[in-house]
Design a protein around this nucleic acid. Structure first.
Lengths: 190, 190
DNA sequence: GTCTATAATCGGATAGAC
DNA sequence: GTCTATCCGATTATAGAC
């Protein structure tokens, strides 16, 4: 792996673990096994390197979500597949956690990939809910965009609950609760 | 207000805004209008001061939540009251945001008030869901502890969505979606 | 209780040799 | 491309005078 690659991967790791404010160039260099000069040769500075790292992480998250959401099955099954897919729950979401970083939110270039990823996910989930409604798999009373927001929020908030308690159990409980609420009732299958 | 009070209030403010890692003693002193010696006279150091600040914030959050949850009304109405109460959405949750701070999670003393607060909230919400089930106001198919986790997660995750997009709209959408899912259907009111 | 002085280390980067 | 040297301000304190 090239030095530039190692620097980006090290930055992704540290951003996930410690956030933007908590990640120093020195720590990145050590994890990447690269010297200072090397880092500043490949990247303009910390924000530049972070941008490359965040973009890559955002793309990967999108691909992983798409893998769950684009499969076969009813709308409910695909939503359940997404919600129940394996996650490193206690590490949290590598994209969502950046929203709590004031320096990320303050920088439009850094915030953009975060915003776009979450926005894309909401849109994708909304269209699945819409499909479910049309096919009578989900209650027609549901507003797709609202339910999509609820789903993404439950996942993002589930990480908060898990990290607060030090156990993934709370994340799982939140997901179970949501799936129970989404579950089509006999009345909806008309 | 005493110097010690001003230091705690300044720390609460900065922890909310910038997190633990992003908050320096110097910034606290400036915001509090206190000198270094003054701060180290009243508190042992940054962790000690942060602990005092976090405990107070946790207590206040609990009191605010209780005010919504202990009122009159049906279970659904009280849950809706809690979910729809006024919030400084773009600032996020002063307690929940701490879970993304590695130094807070690593320190048991700092994590404890966070864990206890969220745990208390989950319990309080679960008992309201349970009441609603017993009175036939909510579907008896719901598992109170799971729904409670879903509610807290939706709120915590709603902050993430809002901050990602730079607008409170996404938070509101998530809450609307959840309320629609919770809404008792004719079939449940038997 | 509060102030100023001092200090070791880190953060974030630039310069220039190799 | 990578390395070492250097820089300046911030971080997180401690010591001791007032």
């Amino acid at each position: 792996m090239s030095t530039s690659e190692r620097l980006i991967e090290a930055t992704r790791e540290l951003l996930w673990e410690r956030g933007y404010v908590g990640t120093s160039p020195k720590a990145i260099q050590q994890l990447a096994g690269a010297g200072q000069g090397s880092m500043y040769h490949h990247f303009a500075g910390k924000p530049d390197l972070a941008l490359a790292a965040v973009r890559r992480t955002a793309h990967e998250l999108r691909a992983a979500a798409a893998a769950s959401l684009d499969g076969p099955g009813t709308a409910y099954e695909r939503l359940a597949g997404y919600l129940l897919r394996e996650r490193d729950v206690l590490r949290g979401c590598p994209v969502g956690r950046l929203t709590m970083d004031p320096d990320v939110i303050a920088d439009d270039r850094l915030r953009a990939p975060v915003d776009e990823t979450i926005d894309w996910l909401r849109g994708r989930l909304a269209s699945i809910v819409e499909e479910g409604r049309e096919r009578g798999e989900l209650s027609s009373a549901l507003v797709p965009a609202d339910i999509a927001a609820t789903i993404v929020a439950t996942v993002q908030g589930g990480y908060v609950l898990a990290r607060a308690s030090g156990s993934p159990a709370a994340f799982d409980a939140g997901v179970r609760g949501l799936l129970a609420l989404l579950k089509p009732s006999a009345a909806d299958r008309r």
